[in-house]
């Protein structure tokens, strides 16, 4: 199953998108732990796009979420129309000096839970893949 969705920062719409992805993952027989991992990564990626990517753009500006779900993998790309950023500039939130900072953990969680995560288009597009575990 594949889809491309333009979505504003609106919780019912986000929940609806997640409901579609979750249903597709269930059709393909993914375990609860896989569903948890993908949801966490998707939520963090969308939060980053809304909060940082769209920071200086008008309220209601949508982001784009493309996803493809097969038996082997879940591929999701989250893209915002903002100015982009340098992912290498994000400090390590697990470094001792950053451990008690309130923010900056989203990317760490995405990289921990997804098999592959890569920024493209100057940081505007995050492509993530979750491979079904053996």
């Amino acid at each position: 199953m594949s889809a491309s969705v333009h979505i504003p920062n609106d919780r019912p719409r986000i929940d609806q998108l997640w409901g579609d992805i979750e249903a597709a993952m269930q059709v393909h027989g993914y375990a609860a732990a896989s569903v948890f991992a993908v949801r966490l990564a998707l939520e963090e990626a969308m939060t980053n796009a809304f909060k940082h990517g769209l920071k200086d753009l008008p309220e209601g500006t949508p982001i784009t979420v493309d996803y493809t779900i097969t038996d082997a993998r879940v591929s999701i790309a989250v893209e915002d129309p903002g100015p982009g950023f340098d992912p290498d500039d994000v400090p390590d939130p697990t470094a001792e000096e950053n451990l008690t900072r309130p923010g900056g953990r989203g990317l760490l969680l995405i990289r921990s839970y997804m098999t592959h995560a890569e920024f493209k288009n100057q940081g505007r597009r995050l492509e993530m893949v979750y491979e079904r575990p053996d």
Partner: peptide, 17 residues
Amino acid sequence: VDHMSSAALGTLITIHH
């Protein structure tokens, strides 16, 4: 709680402080 985001973790840290 079944799911929580890093933003919720951030709030917990603020509460901890």
